[in-house]
Amino acid sequence: MDFLQFLLTLDSTIRLSVVLLLACLAGLFSERAGVVDIGLEGKMLISAFVAAAVAYESGSAWLGVLAGSAASVVFAMIHGVASIIYRGDQIISGVALNFLASGLTVVIGHAIYKKGGQTPTLTGDARFTEVKLPFADAVADVPVIGPIYSELISGHTPLVYVAFAIVPLVWWVLYRTRFGLRLRAVGENPASVDTAGVSVVAMRFRALIITGILCGMAGAYLSTAQSAFFGKEMTAGRGYIALAALIFANWRPVQAMGATLLFGLLEAISNLYPNIDVFGLFSIPVQFTQALPYILTVVILAGFIGRAVPPRSVGVPYVKER
């Protein structure tokens, strides 16, 4: 593998990681606030569809992102009503919303565009195009650093830069602000927040709104940046991989970036090099590389390497004790 090939692999890794990263950070807010969210997949899917449809109709990719995020927030609010207000089971609610998204996107898409759930292809400003960073061309010929800058760092869609910029922001919010302190507390011991005079319900809803927005961005990225249309079931399990990455990252933002880059790398490798030949002895089937994120997550969950420690009250509806 030569240097350029290596760079291309990393470049692909970044593109593929963005969706996972945004979804993973979305899950982080929800779960840190004590609400399990296996509905990341559904929120991404509904947002991907709405974003593509609105971008197509309005001709603006940014409007698409906005609308997609709004749709995702609506889903998050349904999850909130079920799990925060009505103490419903959070797993069941998440599963149901995933189903709802797979159904609604196709039903509505089919009703509008008559293309079996697919939206028309986005063109022009309706889709995100790659941004060439300053001097990208100028330094391209400089050895090593040149290609890294012009190939790897430059030339992504705006959402990619937004996603990576959000990581330090999330860290700062979580660990340096009042909101973050209360958010973490409400996921660990909601009674401590309640008795401190802060509303548990309001905190959890606020967290879910952020979850909705981030998930919406992830979904919109899929249909308006990574592709240029919405296709049936286009999230293809990425919401679950993001969830796995969240566990892998032990519910921490910077680690979440690491985990999603790792999982993105695995996806990039399986796309670019389907069957890896190991010294001519045997070849690693592409399915193994694809399954590796899941296998790694199980290993982490098993606690043989590292230990996943979820927020203590995650998944438990808050009821004042009698």
Partner: peptide, 20 residues
């Protein structure tokens, strides 16, 4: 009603922070 993996200080200011 304490958050077990918070420090003493963090528990004390929780809900009584004097700014964002």
């Amino acid at each position: 009603k304490l958050v077990e993996n918070f420090t003493v200080l963090e528990n004390i200011i929780l809900g009584a922070e004097n700014g964002p």
